[in-house]
Simulated scan of single mutants.
Amino acid sequence: MTVDARRADIISAIQAETGIDDQMIQTLVHGFYGRVRQDPLLAPIFTAHVADWEIHLKTMCEFWSSVALMSGRYHGRPMAKHSPLEIDARHFDRWLHLFEESAADLCPPAAATHFIERARRIAESLELGVAAAGGLILPKGSRLHRPELDPSMRDGAGTSL
């Protein structure tokens, strides 16, 4: 069996189990990023780093096709894009919350579960990578906290996480 034939079999099996197809991926990606672009915590980060939303959304559809269907369409380097960002656990938690909410609202249950399981692994991996890029090695179960990024922690207000 060729690599392409094997990949087609894997995609078909995932689609049969979850109902995920290219249209569902596009609906989820566009719906999710519509929420991100309105979110007070995440919107400023994306606005500062996404120059062309059409290209970004196309890339994210390819990414989620590769993640959810094992299609192999995405060939980027997500860690390189995220590691220089000034983000921490709050941002990853909010991203994940919006993604889970979008998947639950826009996808049938089996597909939502499939997407959410992968999103949780991606968020954890990216958070560990962002921490490592900043010279921090997070012990198992620890989170990346950057009090300087939290407005409630500036000027002595609030308490340390």
Rank of each mutant, 00 (worst) to 15 (best):
G31W: 04
F32A: 01
Y33D: 05
G34M: 07
R35P: 02
V36R: 01
R37P: 11
R37Q: 15
R37N: 10
Q38T: 12
P40R: 09
P44T: 10
F46K: 07
T47L: 09
H49Q: 10
H49G: 04
V50H: 02
W53M: 09
E54S: 11
K58G: 12
T59Q: 13
C61A: 15
E62D: 13
E62F: 11
F63V: 11
W64H: 11
L69E: 02
L69V: 05
M70W: 14
S71T: 06
S71E: 02
R73W: 15
R73M: 13
H75N: 13
R77D: 06
R77Y: 07
R77V: 11
M79Y: 02
M79K: 06
P84A: 03
E86A: 13
D88F: 03
A89E: 12
A89I: 11
A89S: 14
H91L: 08
D93E: 12
L96Q: 04
L96E: 06
L98H: 00
E100M: 12
S102M: 09
A103D: 05
P109E: 00
A111G: 07
A111F: 06
H114N: 11
A119R: 00
R120W: 05
E124I: 05
S125F: 07
E127K: 05
E127V: 07
L128K: 10
V130T: 11
G135F: 11
L136A: 14
L136G: 11
L136F: 13
L138F: 00
P139E: 01
K140M: 12
G141A: 00
S142F: 02
L144Y: 00
R146Q: 05
R146L: 02
R146D: 00
P147N: 01
